[in-house]
């Protein structure tokens, strides 16, 4: 029983991952880049996208450098609901930003270089409903010089 489950897990992992990655690259390249506003910001080139379901959480550790003008974009596929975004200073644990109005991005220019934790919460599905799945992309932009 265990062996069969393990084999199935591995196969599912590889097949599932391959499919969801390709799908999430397309999503990040379209929706993520659109929210980035590439006329003003340059995408930093990192790929942070993954397929998740309602009720899941993402924590991202990221260093932000003083005087750099960042745009942090968080987008999720339709059906996941409005994503909750909270950015907290790693050292002081102060909340830097919380998207109370469901904003898809946050522009941030730190005075001092710092490490932050970006917490994204996908709202849980309604009671009794099957959680929806979809891609979530987190992208970092740097204001063009």
């Amino acid at each position: 029983m265990k062996k069969i489950i393990l084999v199935f897990i591995f196969l599912s992992f590889y097949w599932g991952l391959s499919f969801s990655n390709a799908q999430c690259l397309d999503f990040a390249s379209s929706e993520g880049i659109a929210a980035m506003d590439t006329a003003v910001f340059l995408h930093d080139g990192r790929f942070n996208a993954i397929k998740l379901k309602q009720g899941d959480d993402i924590y991202i550790y990221k260093s932000f450098y003083a005087q750099e003008e960042y745009r942090i974009v968080v987008v999720g596929e339709k059906g996941l609901g409005d994503l909750k975004l909270e950015i907290t200073d790693f050292k002081q644990k102060n909340v830097i930003f919380s998207n109370e109005k469901n904003e898809k991005y946050f522009d941030f220019t730190p005075d001092l270089s710092q490490r932050a934790i970006i917490h994204i919460t996908i709202p849980a599905s309604a009671a009794g409903k099957v959680p929806q799945k979809g891609c979530v992309a987190v992208m970092f932009g740097l204001k063009k010089l």
Binding site: D44, L52, Y59
Partner: peptide
């Protein structure tokens, strides 16, 4: 079991580091 917690480490990209040094 009811929810997944994913942790990403977003390293500065070469573009970001080069800009830091240029600044």
């Amino acid at each position: 079991f009811d929810r997944a917690v994913i942790v990403f480490y977003a390293l500065p990209s070469p573009v970001e580091t080069a800009r830091l040094f240029k600044r």
